[in-house]
Amino acid sequence: MTGRDRKLTRFLRIAAFSIGMIFVLLGVLRGEHLEVFAKAVRICLECIGIG
């Protein structure tokens, strides 16, 4: 791995990690986890191939 590749890898890691954290927080603030919860606690008939 060259020095340039290493710098790029480091940049991508930090960028992806930071964006991931921001996205999770933003999602929680928007209440998306509650939408996920509402979907996950009912049998999803489409998911299991019924309708």
Partner: peptide, 25 residues
């Protein structure tokens, strides 16, 4: 994958930051 589609396909949001962020982490 189910959650991503559930949030995007719901009436409130077009994109799921929560799921995408979790998967990115």
């Amino acid at each position: 994958i189910g959650s991503l589609q559930a949030v995007e396909g719901g009436a409130k949001h077009n994109i799921s930051f929560y799921v995408l962020g979790t998967l990115m982490l």
